[in-house]
Simulated assay, not measured.
Amino acid sequence: MTTQIILPKLGFSVNEAALVEWMVADGAAVKKGDPLYCIESEKSLQEIEAPADGVLRILEEAGETYEVGTVIGELV
């Protein structure tokens, strides 16, 4: 089963955020709760945890800004 990694909404008025870094390499195994990536909005820098166990497949690169709800990766 594949779990989509979706860029979360950090605040009521936040519609986009910068994907600062992936903390896990593409193709690496992760456990639910492991630090996965870091995002930055206009007000905060936040580390996001893996929502499930799996192998990371990166779909969007770090260093870019994405709309909230964008699928940036998958855990397979």
Rank of each mutant, 00 (worst) to 15 (best):
Gly27Trp: 05
Gly54Pro: 02
Ser13Trp: 10
Glu74Gly: 07
Ala52Glu: 05
Lys43Met: 12
Arg57Thr: 15
Asn15Arg: 12
Lys9Arg: 15
Glu60Gly: 05
Leu45Gln: 01
Thr70Gln: 06
Pro8Cys: 14
Leu19Asn: 04
Lys31Arg: 15
Gly69Tyr: 04
Glu47Gln: 10
Lys43Ile: 09
Leu36Thr: 06
Gly54Tyr: 01
Ile6Asp: 11
Gln4Thr: 11
Glu21Met: 08
Glu40Lys: 12
Glu74Ser: 10
Val76Phe: 10
Lys9Val: 03
Ala29Gly: 12
Arg57Tyr: 04
Asp34Gln: 07
Lys43Leu: 11
Ile58Cys: 10
Ile58Trp: 08
Thr2Cys: 13
Val24Tyr: 03
Tyr66Thr: 02
Met23Phe: 03
Leu75Trp: 01
Val68Thr: 03
Ile48Glu: 11
Ala52Gly: 09
Thr3Trp: 04
Glu16Cys: 02
Val20Leu: 08
Thr70Gly: 10
Leu45Ser: 01
Cys38Met: 11
Val68Pro: 04
Thr70Phe: 04
Val14Glu: 11
Gly69Gln: 05
Met23Gly: 02
Ser13Cys: 12
Glu47Gly: 01
Ala62Leu: 00
Lys9Glu: 12
Cys38Trp: 00
Ala28Asn: 11
Ala18Arg: 06
Leu19Tyr: 03
Asp26Met: 05
Gln46Pro: 00
Val55Asp: 05
Gly54Gln: 02
Thr65Trp: 01
Pro51Phe: 06
Gly27Phe: 06
Thr70Pro: 09
Leu56Tyr: 00
Glu74His: 01
Ile6Met: 11
Ile6Trp: 10
Val76Arg: 13
Gly11His: 03
Leu56Cys: 01
Met1Arg: 12
Tyr37Met: 12
Ser13Ala: 15
Gly33Gln: 03
Val71Ser: 08
Ile39Thr: 03
Leu36Pro: 06
Met1Asn: 14
Gly33Tyr: 01
Asp34Cys: 04
Gly69Asp: 06
Leu7Lys: 07
Ser41Lys: 10
Glu64Lys: 13
Glu40Ala: 14
Cys38Lys: 14
Gly69Trp: 02
Ala50Ser: 13
Ala17Ser: 14
Tyr37His: 09
Ser13Arg: 12
Ala17Lys: 04
Pro8Met: 13
Glu42Gly: 15
Leu10Asn: 04
Phe12Asp: 15
Ile5Pro: 05
